[in-house]
Design a protein around this nucleic acid. Structure first.
Lengths: 149, 149
DNA sequence: CTGCAACTTAAAGGGCACTTCAACTCAAGG
DNA sequence: CCTTGAGTTGAAGTGCCCTTTAAGTTGCAG
């Protein structure tokens, strides 16, 4: 078996077939086709999905993920070097995000804790270096509600 | 002036009036009413909105935020101690999230970098301690696209 | 060659966090 | 008073990330 059907691929990727089709429409992944028009996935596509899942956990939009993936070669299977380059890029993003959250953590204690939580003054809420202001953005990315209390 | 109109409150809170009405429908904030049925906000409600904004930056859903806010007293204005208790709770959540992302960062380099990024084996993608698996959840929480390349 | 699970598509639906719209009312200054 | 900007409501719309459904096709086991 050289390639995978969407069902098999979905199981291995840990993602629904419908999501895979969606990703394909969005230009995030690609698949070959049989004579009868059914998708056949190369194993290397699993890495793409893996990358997408990781990036999502970090809170990146599919739009940005697509941009990142666009830096991979189109005509050949990405090498380890390709992935390394990409991962280095994301590592930086991730680190920026971590730094952000660390500051948030530090200020949360000092700022809310002290009761100063004023919209006007508090640099937690009105940061000069704008944290991640644009658009609305929720999601239960954070805590697996297990540890909730 | 003791209370604020929705317009003034919105400006001070740095959030649209429509969002404030939405939050109220969701039970996240409260407002008094004039004889003519217009909302009048106490200044102390600003702290609630501040808290909501912070929690959102961390990636928490409004549902969870409401739960957290539910621990504040209903019959009186929350004291600094109330906010301190709440912030301590969130600090723990935030720290868990930071730890998660640090692991993500560390493994990203080692795991994608080395090319091992296999769906089956990689504990980045299939973590035993399930990171934040439930539901789909994107958002551009992460990077202000400024530093993108 | 047949039968059935798995596949295909386009289109509609769903949850979240809002925003926008239409139609209407209120509050405050001149 | 009257005007006008600001506020009110419910309902519909938006963007993101998918899932579901309907109607039909493919592929492999028996």
């Amino acid at each position: 078996m050289e390639t995978l059907t969407i069902g098999d691929f979905a199981v291995r990727a840990g993602i629904a077939p419908s999501a895979l089709r969606y990703y394909e429409r969005q230009g995030l992944i690609r698949a070959g086709r049989t004579g009868g028009n059914q998708r056949r996935y190369e194993r290397s596509e699993l890495r793409r999905v893996a990358f997408i899942k990781i990036a999502q956990q970090v809170g990146v939009s599919l739009d940005e993920i697509r941009e990142a993936l666009a830096s991979l070669p189109e005509n050949r299977t990405p090498t380890k070097a390709d992935w390394t380059r990409l991962s280095a890029h994301w590592r930086r993003k991730l680190e920026a995000r971590i730094t952000l959250m660390e500051r948030l953590r530090d200020e949360l204690t000092g700022c809310i804790g002290c009761g100063c939580l004023s919209m006007q003054r508090c640099n937690l809420i009105n940061p000069k270096d704008r944290l991640a202001a644009r658009g609305a953005g929720p999601q239960m990315l954070l805590n697996p509600p297990d540890q909730d209390g």
